[in-house]
Amino acid sequence: MKLRLEDNTLRLRLTDEEVQQFAQTGHLASAVPLAPGPDGRLTYALQVADDDSTAAEQTLRVAYTPGTLSVLVPASLAQSWLAPDQIGLSATMRLTDGNELRILVEKDLGCRH
């Protein structure tokens, strides 16, 4: 799974195999070591949200704690994205400081490495 951060955009791209794993488990994670020691790594994940019962949460969102970045996908949205004809998901999340974060999750089906 590729993570790309640029300006106010967070983008995840998944290979076909990673899409299949996400379909089976509802979770996919990768880690990047940024410094020595156990606290020196960034873990990023795509996961089905635990609760997508409210209309306000029927969109992609991000959960962040130091060292961990998770893109949360409501179950109904994840199910439709897993259909063969659906390539990407996108949303804009409003942040408390007035900024916005654009979130993109895409199938990288042409990637074969």
Rank of each mutant, 00 (worst) to 15 (best):
M1E: 06
R4P: 01
R4V: 03
R4I: 15
E6W: 07
E6T: 07
E6F: 04
D7I: 01
T9R: 00
L10D: 08
L10I: 15
R11Y: 04
R11I: 00
R11D: 10
L12C: 00
L14K: 00
L14I: 00
T15I: 02
T15A: 14
T15D: 11
D16M: 11
E17T: 07
E18G: 00
V19N: 09
Q21C: 13
F22V: 15
F22E: 01
A23F: 14
A23Q: 10
Q24T: 05
Q24E: 14
Q24A: 08
T25I: 01
G26M: 13
G26F: 01
H27A: 12
S30C: 06
S30W: 06
P33Q: 08
P33F: 02
P33R: 08
A35K: 03
A35I: 04
P36F: 08
G37F: 06
G37K: 11
P38F: 11
P38D: 02
P38Q: 03
P38W: 05
G40H: 04
R41V: 02
R41S: 09
L42W: 06
T43G: 00
T43P: 02
Y44M: 12
L46R: 10
L46D: 01
A49Q: 07
A49I: 03
D50W: 15
D51H: 11
A55E: 14
A56Q: 10
E57P: 02
Q58P: 06
Q58A: 06
T59L: 14
T59Y: 12
T59C: 09
L60C: 05
R61L: 13
R61E: 06
R61N: 07
V62A: 11
Y64C: 11
T65S: 05
P66M: 06
G67W: 03
G67M: 12
S70F: 11
S70W: 04
L72T: 11
L72V: 09
L72E: 15
V73M: 03
A75Y: 13
A75Q: 13
S76E: 11
L77G: 05
L77N: 09
A78F: 05
Q79S: 12
S80R: 12
S80M: 04
W81E: 00
L82F: 15
A83V: 14
D85S: 05
D85L: 07
D85V: 02
L89I: 09
L89N: 03
L89D: 00
S90H: 08
R94G: 14
T96E: 02
D97S: 10
G98P: 04
G98T: 08
N99H: 15
N99C: 15
E100G: 10
E100C: 01
L101V: 14
R102E: 12
R102I: 13
R102A: 13
I103T: 10
L104N: 04
L104P: 09
L104A: 10
L104Y: 02
L104C: 03
E106H: 13
D108R: 06
L109A: 08
L109M: 10
C111I: 11
C111F: 12
R112A: 10
